[in-house]
Every structure is written in structure tokens, then in C-alpha cells.
């Protein structure tokens, strides 16, 4: 087990190098940092000497070899903690990125805590009576859930709980934007929770749909297995058959899936964050993107790809831990 973890971590390092290099090239091409810099600093842009200096310090040379050299300049700065400052406003990147990261993780974990129990319960509920009304209802509900795009549910909820509710009853039922009311200072979990309700609902709709379908399929697979028939042939209680044999086995792929899903949280909530003005990674990305702010986007991408790679590893470990058939070395 330990050998496996070490080996996988050792593998993760070259993978990260390759992925970050590809991301570096893609972002250099997509954002064109030099042009962005010129746009943000029109006066500097007129001075060729200063521009040349910007290219040199940040490694923004053109051509493939320029990209390779530039990547190493960026990498050195990144690992030594000398991150490039943002193009817009020349601010250090990490403080804002950290706040965004924490906010998104908060929102994502809350959504996970809501959607996994609901989704799994629905899936189990459906699988226990396949082909019956409840099964059809859950299945249909899941497809409806898939079809409700987050930006649509987000603005409809905003309209209903914010604007229309205020029209009918005098004031909005739920806050529809931000993390706190404007001007609020300090940390207030209850207030924050209230601001997170609508974003969490939006994120959870599609999550619940997908968890319920996966759980249903996985449990049905197990329910139709030979070993479940063996368990029933023993004369143990149906409850024990379901919990000890069916659910235990059906959870294996679900745990793996959940691990992968949690790894995708940090970059995956852009739409609801944007609609509800929630100051997380998504809003950070959209702002940085619109400014062509390469120094902000690069660490952002590193965080989300590392998270994906890390949780991939965790998913493998969880799988091996839950399923004795998997050999790790």
C-alpha cells in the first residue's frame, strides 16, 4: 500500500510537469500576456525599453523555444514563492486566490454534503423496486435534473426568491448575491449560510441527478449478482442482505466517483458563482480571463489540475481499500 502511494506520488510529479507545461503554452497562446500588459498599462506600452524588460523578467519570449524557456522562468518563480504579480493592478496573486479557494471549497463541500445523501438515497429507493412507479419517478427526475442547466436554475431562483418574493411579501426571502451583505465585516457563519443556500441548490440539482443514477445502476448490478442470491439463500434477514452485502458492494464505485467529484469542485462551480456573485474560484477565473491576466490564471490552473490529480490518487486508494480484489503493487 505504502509502496503504491509513493510510486503514484512519484508519478504525479512528472505528470504535473507535463500538464503544467501544456497549460502554460495554452494560456500563453490564449491570453497573450504581453498584449494584456500593454492594454492594462497604456503608458508603459509606448516605451519599448520597458516592454522589453517586462518580457525579460517574465520570460515572455516568442516561439516554441521561447515558451520552453519561459516555462522554466515561471516554474522557478512559482516554486520559490516569487510569483509574478497580476497584470491588472500589479498585485500579488496569492492573497486573493486563497480567499477565492476557501470560499469555493466552502460552497462545494456544503453542496456535496447536501447532494450525496439525497442522491444516494434516491438511487437506493429506486433500485429497490426496479420498474415500479418510484423507479420511473426517480429516473425521470434525474433526467429533468440533467436538463436544468445551472445558469437557468440560478436566474429563475434569483428572480423568484429575490425579486418576485419582495414584490409579493415586501422583502426578498433569500439573499441572491455575494457572500455577505455589502459592507459586512468579519466572519458570521449563519449569515454566510443564508447567502449560500441558493448557490448550493443550483449546484446540487445536477449532482443529485447524477448520484441518484449512478447509485441506482450500481445497486441494481449488485442486486442481480450471484453472490446476492447466495446471501438470500442463507436465510438471513433481508435487511442484512441489503446492508451487509448489497450496499457494501454497491458503494465501491460510488466512493470512487465521489472522490473524483470532490477533486473537481475547485474549478467546477463557475456558473453558480458567477450568477450569484459568489467570490470564489469561478469569479476569480472569469475576471482574470477577461483581463487576459496570465499571472493570475496560471496558479489558478495549477491548483485545479493538482486537485484533480490528487483526488484521482485518493479515488484509487479508496477503491483498493474497499475492494480486496484490487492489488496495489
Amino acid at each position: 500500500m505504502l509502496r503504491f502511494i509513493v510510486r503514484r506520488l512519484l508519478w504525479a510529479i512528472p505528470t504535473l510537469f507535463i500538464v503544467t507545461f501544456v497549460v502554460y503554452c495554452a494560456l500563453r497562446l490564449a491570453t497573450n500576456p504581453l498584449a494584456s500588459y500593454a492594454r492594462a498599462n497604456p503608458r508603459v506600452a509606448k516605451d519599448p525599453e520597458k516592454m522589453a524588460q517586462y518580457v525579460e523578467t517574465n520570460g515572455l519570449w516568442p516561439g516554441f523555444s521561447g515558451y520552453v524557456r519561459g516555462y522554466f522562468v515561471w516554474l522557478k518563480g512559482f516554486v520559490t514563492g516569487n510569483w509574478q504579480v497580476s497584470i491588472k493592478g500589479s498585485r500579488p496573486v496569492w492573497p486573493n486566490l486563497k480567499i477565492a479557494l476557501v470560499n469555493t471549497i466552502r460552497l462545494g463541500l456544503l453542496a456535496v454534503m447536501v447532494s450525496i445523501p439525497i442522491g444516494l438515497s434516491l438511487g437506493i429507493f429506486a433500485a429497490l423496486k426496479p420498474g415500479r412507479l418510484r423507479d420511473t419517478a426517480v429516473n425521470t427526475g434525474a433526467i429533468i435534473g440533467f436538463s436544468v442547466q445551472p445558469f437557468i436554475s440560478a436566474i429563475i431562483l434569483q428572480l423568484f426568491f429575490g425579486v418576485q418574493w419582495a414584490k409579493w411579501f415586501g422583502e426578498p426571502l433569500l439573499p441572491t448575491s455575494g457572500l455577505y451583505p455589502p459592507g459586512h465585516q468579519g466572519f458570521d457563519p449563519v449569515l454566510m449560510l443564508k447567502y449560500m443556500i441558493l448557490p448550493v441548490i443550483v449546484v446540487s440539482i445536477q449532482s443529485i441527478a447524477s448520484y441518484s443514477r449512478y447509485m441506482r445502476a450500481s445497486l441494481l448490478d449488485v442486486l442481480n449478482s450471484d453472490y446476492l442470491r447466495t446471501a438470500r439463500s442463507k436465510g438471513i434477514s433481508e435487511r442484512r442482505v441489503l446492508v451487509k452485502h448489497a450496499l457494501r458492494n454497491a458503494m465501491i464505485p460510488i466512493v470512487t466517483l465521489a472522490a473524483l467529484d470532490i477533486g473537481a469542485i475547485v474549478g467546477g462551480l463557475i456558473i453558480s458563482e458567477a450568477v450569484f456573485d459568489y467570490p470564489g474560484m469561478g469569479v476569480f477565473f472569469l475576471n482574470a480571463q477577461s483581463n487576459g491576466d496570465f499571472p493570475e490564471l496560471m496558479p489558478w490552473m495549477v491548483i485545479i489540475t493538482s486537485s484533480v490529480i490528487l483526488f484521482n490518487l485518493l479515488a484509487d486508494l479508496a477503491y483498493a481499500w474497499l475492494d480486496p480484489r484490487i492489488r496495489l503493487d
Binding site: 449478482s225 450471484d226 453472490y227 447466495t230 465501491i252 475492494d323 480486496p324
Partner: peptide, 16 residues
């Protein structure tokens, strides 16, 4: 009454 099935690999629970 007890029953023995054809394929003992799939008839035994893999995780217990």
C-alpha cells in the same frame, strides 16, 4: 434446504 451454485467465484461475495 441449502443450495450450491454453478460458478463459485461469482456466488461468493468478493469483499467479505
Amino acid at each position: 434446504v441449502a443450495m450450491i451454485f454453478q460458478d463459485p467465484l461469482s456466488a461468493l461475495n468478493p469483499v467479505h
